[in-house]
Structure formats: C-alpha cells, structure tokens
Design a protein around this nucleic acid. Sequence first.
DNA 1: CGGTGCGTTGAAACAGCTCAAGGCTTGTGG
DNA 2: CCACAAGCCTTGAGCTGTTTCAACGCACCG
Lengths: 247, 247
Amino acid sequence: MNEMKSAFNASCFNCGLQKICFPTGLLKTDIDRLDDIVERKSPLKKNQHLYEAGQKFTSIFAIRAGAVKLYSYSDLGEEIVHGFYLPGDVVGFDGLIENAYLYNAVALDSTSVCNLPFDQLSELSLKIPNLNQQILTVMSKKMHDGRMHSELLIKRNADQRVAQFIWNMAERYKNRGYAYDEFRLSILHRDVALYLGLTPETVSRILAKFNADHIVSWKKKEVIIYNEKLLKNIAGISSCEVCKEAG
Amino acid sequence: MNEMKSAFNASCFNCGLQKICFPTGLLKTDIDRLDDIVERKSPLKKNQHLYEAGQKFTSIFAIRAGAVKLYSYSDLGEEIVHGFYLPGDVVGFDGLIENAYLYNAVALDSTSVCNLPFDQLSELSLKIPNLNQQILTVMSKKMHDGRMHSELLIKRNADQRVAQFIWNMAERYKNRGYAYDEFRLSILHRDVALYLGLTPETVSRILAKFNADHIVSWKKKEVIIYNEKLLKNIAGISSCEVCKEAG
DNA sequence: CGGTGCGTTGAAACAGCTCAAGGCTTGTGG
DNA sequence: CCACAAGCCTTGAGCTGTTTCAACGCACCG
C-alpha cells in the first residue's frame, strides 16, 4: 500500500486540498492515521462511474483531481442533476441512509479520488473526536449548499441563475488557490441547464448575451470572466442595486 | 430534573415518536443514557422562536408536538422558507457549520421540543457507536429531503408542487400513526408559496381548483383529502399516466 | 368596531418553454 | 486521413404558465 501511495505521490499530509477536504485541520498524528485508511486507485476516465445508484455503500470519496457529477432519475425517468464536485470536495454521503448509494457519480473528465472506506473511517472517528466533528461539519455544509441551491431555484430568474452558477464555480476554484478568472469547466451546458432548472436553449441564449456584454465567456469548456463585478452583481452577490442598469 | 420529566410525562423510552426521531432504534440502556441528557422545557407559544440565526449553537431539538418553520433571509432581504417540521423531526443541524445557527426556527403553533445539548450528545455518541450512526443517518436523510425539494422546484409545475406538498405532509402524518386524510396544518398559504417557489395568488388559485374538483380542501388550517389517488397522481407519485386526464 | 394581515379573483404582461431547423465538434470506422 | 454520424449548441418564432398589479372580502385581535 505504501508503494501505491508513492506511486500516486500522495498523502493527506502533503495534500494541498487538506483544508478543503477536512477544513479545520487535524493533528499531524491524526492525519497519519487517516492516511492509513485511504485507498488511492487509478484515475477514472471520462464518463466512468465512481459509483452508481443502488450499489452497496462502502466508502466516501475525496476528489483529488478532475470533476464529478452527481445525478439520478426521477420517478418519471427525468435526469436530476444534484451537483458538480471539484478537487477537495467529498462525495458519497448519499449512501448513508440506506447503506446503498442513492445517486450516480460520474467523472466529467479524467478524475482521481481518495477512497475512504466508511466502516474504517467511522471506527477511526470514534478515536479522533475532532474527525467525527469534521465529518458532521462537512455534511452540514453540504446541507447548506443544498439550501442555497433551493434558494437559487426559488428566487432567481434565468440570468441570475447562470451568473450565480458561474461565479460559484469561480469562487470554488479561488478557494482552492487556483486561477478563477480563467478556468477549465468540463460541464456540458445541457447539464448546467438541468441543474439550474432551465432548458439548454435558455442557458445558451444567456451565455450568448453575457458574451456580447463582455461579462463572461464560456466556450469549449473554457470559462473566462471579463467583468467580475458585473457578474457578481447579476448573480445578486453584491448589494449595489444601482449598477444593475449597466447589464 | 426527574421532576421535570414527570411533569411533562416524557421520556425517550415511552415516546411514541422514538422510531421517527432515531429510526432504527437503540438498546434500552442506551435510550436511558440519551434520556439523561434531554432537557424538556415548557412549550413555545405560536410565533415564538426556538432559535434565531446567529445564535450560538448549543443543541439540536426533537419536536414533540406542534410545528416549526425554518427560514432565513437572502442577501436581498427576501424571506427564504427552508421547510416545515413536525413531531418526531429533528432540527438544529444548521448550527453545526459555524457553531451558530444559520436559520430561524419559529413555532407555527404551540410547540414543545426535546432539547439535546450537542456537546453532551456527541460525547455520548462516542460511547454509543450506533447513536453516532443514527445522527449521521438523520442528517443524510435531511440532505435527501433537500434534494427532493430541489427536484420539485426543477421539474414540477405549480399544480404538481402544491399536490406534492400536501401529499408529503399527509404521508408524514401517516408515518407517525396519525390520521392523514384529515389533519390540522397550521401553515400559512403564504409560507407554502415561499417554500414552493410560487406566489400566494398561484397557490390560492390551485387550491380553489383542487377544491372544486373534490380532490383536497385546505381551509382554515384544516386539510381534508377527498381523493387520495388523484392527489398522488397530480403530485406525480403514482406512475399511472392515463388517469391524468381526470384532473 | 375598526384595523391589519391573509386569502381571493380578475385582467394584463412577460419570462422562459416548446418546437423546429441548421451549424459545429468530436469520435469512429473505412 | 477523410467521411460520416451522433451529440451538443445555437437561433428564431410562437405559445403558455405563472407573475404582477390591483381591488376587494374575510377573519381575527385589540
């Protein structure tokens, strides 16, 4: 297993995403213990599934590189997109309820993950109270994200939704220390539309408008933010109500 | 403290909501230990707050009777309604992230709750692994509820949203062993509208229609379901696509 | 008994959807 | 390496469900 670790040149201690993954930080000795249970497999190819709905729940997964989409199907067979996950994000909590995953997790790009077998993790978390707390915090953060998503769907119109989505992605890259005014985003517009409760046509029209207004362009998986302030403003982040006109 | 318990004639062991509160059940000895940390205060009056956004996070709360609304305000000052909670439901997890509650929890009716001080609860949960598991399960169930809410907002039109909301409430009463075709629902239509991402006018029109069609009536906080099948059908629960016409 | 907040109803406006057709990528097989 | 197919994106025109605005009724509470 140590070979494997070195093969992937990875350990929790050296991982730049540690602060995102388990935010408030653990003691070095505790990190080492966590490290011992982490399994790092070879990366997933694009369109490969990390797990599928109905599979037995075994692990939660921390994403190290790439991007993952969580989705499922409604009773009527429509695809529901639950969210997009980036390096440092943790997925798999949907498996906790029924001891089987509720959603499908698919790689949108070449993606590598850290596999955290849950029985070992929860055993360890009994010995490291802080870890237990971390897990709860990560989960409750996820709950809050969900609430933000609902707020978006309830209160925002199409322009605001798209702007907020792009800015949200940018901010997540920012928090991870990556460039955020210009980044790769391997998400289909179709999937964004599903996630935002819009049609692909509407998303397309709005992106065309944003591009024409030199606010942001998103072409061929490449996002470039030209006017951060305006983008945030449309998204409803800033409280400046005046500059709205400019859009 | 024992006096207080007997005063409210309550203990986790005797509580009829045990299965809802911590579903898969704990050993009797463990329940007693849980019981010891539960504080039961005098009931909240209508419109009193159980907690408010920004308050220091101290406890999670299990609702014993009444109803609670969770809400907050968006950056632009709009009210966001996050959900409605009934006896057996647990609220307060929003406090975990920042060690302060994120939302406001207000009683919609005279409401009594069991107060579970979180530091004691998490200490106890280290000693009772199953309890720890229960907490995670309750949380992940909440996450799933949130997802269902998003799905509703993304995929369903106004009729379906209202129907699904009412049926969802009915089902929750059913699960608790109460009458579910006729029950009290002390939620303002205004609040339902906010929760469903609709306007009060739209909700009103739809309820009028449902009433005219003898599907369900909701007047003066009293819900009566006349045609369960049709209601479920409109809500998109049943898979029978044919009977749709009848509506 | 009059106010205040909630619910109802109607008419008009509009945001986003649907349907349709065409263009552009990307991947695959000859 | 080219040709072709499949999937995704774009653009336009018309339609429809929901909102908006406004006015009124009703119930509850002081």
